[in-house]
């Protein structure tokens, strides 16, 4: 058997992989040496002071009580170091670079569907360019799944209730595993695939291969077939608000509260329009819950995003709590 058939450490495929591994290795060294120290101590003491005819009863001497303060204080300080490092890394994983490429993923019992903003769709395979941050917007059509890229050291649960985002920047070309990490029923262990990391030029070639038009243009068609355009004419006097420039802007609601128009707000506006009424409009928009699939919803989202918006979209990865009411 080749050694490559029997890996003991995962490949590093993304910019954060090395950082996660660094924390892992440092923690292993610290906890490993403390554990070995404890084991040795137990072993040595238990042998040295084993019961013999001469050693029938423990001797009176105790180790000094000062020890107590030491082994409460020192571990605590070390633990706090671990906490800070771990939290710092988590924040890094949550901060999505600005120039990220957008990809949309839907989890469904039991497959992963990926849609690119250029309109390509693929199942259980994801093509991405090397060296460029990729942001994935995630949705589930049924139960909770979890999109896991072991070589990139990231995963995120995929919820049926709202969008989540994750990102990575691949550092080398090749094929890497995609796993579903949250148990989701019969074929959970079959909900796997590959991410193909390509040279940018190869990626461009791959993109040039056929598609049914960009995701936004597909969304625009849906916008017409679902008759959204009858109300959202992009005219200030229309029955529905203007959607141009909406994405990422602040929306004032009927009760004068202000919300940010991020992915989850737009999702909710379509699936449950009565939840947050835009100031100056009545509850006339019908609900599209159950009528638009998650894939189509993502296309509509891509279309609305393409209509332009406030410069910096919400720091995705800072998961907004969904407010259903």
């Amino acid at each position: 058997m080749l050694i490559s058939d029997f890996p003991l450490f995962p490949e590093q495929g993304s910019t954060v992989a090395g950082q996660v591994d660094a924390l892992f290795i440092v923690l292993s060294v610290i906890t490993g040496s403390v554990s070995i120290l404890i084991f040795l101590l137990i072993f040595i003491l238990a042998i040295k002071y084993r019961r013999t005819p001469q050693n029938q009863l423990a001797q009176d001497q105790e180790p000094p009580q000062m020890l107590e303060a030491g082994w409460i204080g020192i571990p605590f300080v070390i633990f706090m170091g671990m906490f800070v490092w771990g939290a710092w890394l988590y924040f890094r994983l949550a901060r999505i670079p600005d120039n990220a490429l957008d990809v949309y993923a839907t989890g469904k019992q039991w497959m992963w569907k990926f849609q690119h903003s250029t309109g390509q769709r693929e199942i259980n395979t994801l093509h991405v360019p090397v060296g460029r941050p990729v942001r994935i917007t995630l949705a589930s059509e049924d139960v909770i799944h979890s999109l896991f890229f072991p070589s990139f050291r990231i995963k995120a649960d995929v919820l049926p209730s709202r969008y989540r985002t994750m990102w990575f920047q691949a550092t080398r070309t090749g094929r890497f595993h995609i796993f579903c990490a949250e148990y989701c029923g019969t074929q959970h262990s079959g909900m796997i695939g590959w991410v193909e990391v390509m040279e940018p030029t190869d990626y461009q070639k791959w993109l040039a291969g056929g598609s049914e038009g960009s995701l936004a243009s597909q969304g625009e068609k849906l916008f017409q077939t679902h008759a959204c355009n009858t109300c959202h004419t992009n005219d200030a006097t229309a029955r529905g608000p203007v959607l141009v420039g909406l994405y990422g802007s602040d929306v004032t609601l009927g009760d004068n509260s202000v919300v940010k128009a991020d992915d989850n707000y737009i999702r909710e506006s379509i699936l449950n329009p009565q939840a947050k009424l835009v100031k100056g409009f009545g509850p006339i928009m019908p609900t599209f819950q159950g009528q638009v699939s998650e894939d189509d919803l993502l296309k509509l989202l891509a279309y609305i995003k393409s209509l332009g918006g406030a410069p910096a979209p919400s720091p995705a990865g800072t998961p907004q709590k969904e407010q259903r009411r």
């Binding site: 996660v20 892992f24 923690l27 671990m82 490092w85 710092w88 988590y90 890094r92 072991p150 050291r153």
Partner: peptide, 12 residues
Amino acid sequence: AALGLDVHVTDT
């Protein structure tokens, strides 16, 4: 418990 590391190892 280390947040950034848990992202990789949780559910494994």
